[in-house]
Design a protein around this nucleic acid. Sequence first.
DNA 1: CTGAAAGCGCTTACAG
DNA 2: CTGAAAGCGCTTACAG
Lengths: 356, 356
Amino acid sequence: MIETGNRQQTRRLRSASLKDVAERAGIGIATASAVLNGSRTNTRVSDVTRERVLAAAKELDYHANALARALTGQPTKTLGIVFGFPFALMSLPDPYAFAVLQGVVKGATETGYNITLYTEPWHSEAQSSGVLRDGRTDGVLVIAVATYSDMIGSLTKAGIPLVAVSSCCKGYGVPSVDVDNAAGARLATRHLLDLGHRRIAHIRGDDHLTSGIERREAFAQEMAAAGSPERPEYVLYGSYTGSAGYDRMKQLLALPQAPTAVFAANDVVALGAIEAARDCGLNVPGDLSVVGFDDIPIPALVSSGLTTIRQPLDEIGVMAVRMLAALVRDEDVSPVSRTLEPELIVRHSTAPPRLR
Amino acid sequence: MIETGNRQQTRRLRSASLKDVAERAGIGIATASAVLNGSRTNTRVSDVTRERVLAAAKELDYHANALARALTGQPTKTLGIVFGFPFALMSLPDPYAFAVLQGVVKGATETGYNITLYTEPWHSEAQSSGVLRDGRTDGVLVIAVATYSDMIGSLTKAGIPLVAVSSCCKGYGVPSVDVDNAAGARLATRHLLDLGHRRIAHIRGDDHLTSGIERREAFAQEMAAAGSPERPEYVLYGSYTGSAGYDRMKQLLALPQAPTAVFAANDVVALGAIEAARDCGLNVPGDLSVVGFDDIPIPALVSSGLTTIRQPLDEIGVMAVRMLAALVRDEDVSPVSRTLEPELIVRHSTAPPRLR
DNA sequence: CTGAAAGCGCTTACAG
DNA sequence: CTGAAAGCGCTTACAG
């Protein structure tokens, strides 16, 4: 006989199954199942049998196969997470997404779930729903779903337990958690107003994300309410990237009458704007005040000094997981939507406008 | 009849199975399998049959169950990732771990895998190997495994395809990837030496992580080679946290003859040390030079100005996934160990010592 | 080209 | 208290 498949053998020896254990212990497979993986608490097994099974399992180094268990209807004990925005910016490298993920992991650890990161962002139902519906997770967490996306509708229709973070999910009855974007934007705007600024610009976030839309609207309202309605040339589209913040700031500074302050849609944009201002020889906050949004975590002890609207990123992740875990277990999830309060954090990127 | 389980029904309607599709199409289940999930490329199906199956699948909104497929031996197309160090510091909130994870996700996206984060850190084989061996992933990536851990041995024994990042896995034949820690530490030390420093301290990393050990040894060697052997009171244990860096720095500064420079085991420690120096009224780099290690990413455009030894964190993650993917597919993985070159990045935390 | 059968490893009623 | 049987949804030889 020729030795074939040898490499395979050494690498992946079939591990012991319940049947192997049962045989070795000389008892039935159902009983072995009851003592080893026993969710069936009402099954009574005699002590001798139990010992025998346990011993056999140990000898065979038995480990239950999660796939088989899940196939019979047991929970997989893993939760999926997808980023709804089909661009790189809303995936892991984005500080917002990352901070939320930290909270998610924390929440998952405490509730006993593992997390699977779906690496392929959502494109369309036809293209993307396959993996999300293939049974490997008990439920999924969606983050930053674009308003035009069919993701939430599609997943809901498929009967997948869902919790949405920072997404528009009106009308689907999907539990969701987010910061109060409007309140945050008002806080930022009012802060600038209170400092004495009137020429206030807004570099917007994305038009297809509720955060971008809500912050933008609240800015307009607050300005109008303050009696100094926004100027069209002061409100620029900035997506959510540092480079957009940089470019838009340059554009604002080239205006015949440049703004004295800007409310950036998020911290990344704000940081880009500050960089642009500095490159133009301006001092922040002396010549220009900048407020961000998010309060993204910066590694230990280095501070950007950015005045911003803080949202509890970590808490959002934890909360989302708790809600999803409850949903998966068919517990009551109420209220269906949680809106967290933002907070103004004044640091060193804002000051009263220069007197002229 | 009483309407019972109504909530359940609306939530989780059983989704169509292959059998449903086959029945509707009026053909056999094996054929349906071939056209729908067909890995069996050699199976020829007539066009009419194919169309019928496809149509039925569409009508029924069929989606293959990944659990069932995997149970028959198909790959799960997901890779697991565990942090080996049983403390929070070596999990997600740690900038190093996070940066590597970004690379991992990038690599997984390009190779078509999903990633599952095992939330429970490894404790011992008895306690922790269960989840990792339950079949839900095709292989696992281990990161920063402590030298005393039985994790690698245990997982290898269980026949799980493994790739280790920044871990000691000598003797197991486990493919691994890491930066050349010794070379990096030499670079850092020599940089300080070249600037003219002689009173150089080292705040060490963890003793149970190869990175901590290797960096520490290389520091000693380089100092000895330069003819100014290290002083015992200048080499302090710092684990890998900012607060340890802070505390150890204070301690060093309280010495009768304080060092003029310090090589911190990683950036987080370096940042802590700098903070401590500043709190003591010292100027960095005027009064004290500090070099870190890692070059952790800092959100857009904010720079800590830290002189450090850069390691390609992102690339490490990508590479590890590629190796694991190859391993899982039984391709050749060679060389079994990859060591990447570190690079000295001189920024603003180092300068020649003050003349006295 | 097509399908009935066996099997992957488990769990859940259902009889003893 | 214990076990044989059916079933979860798929795939893989193996016959037609």
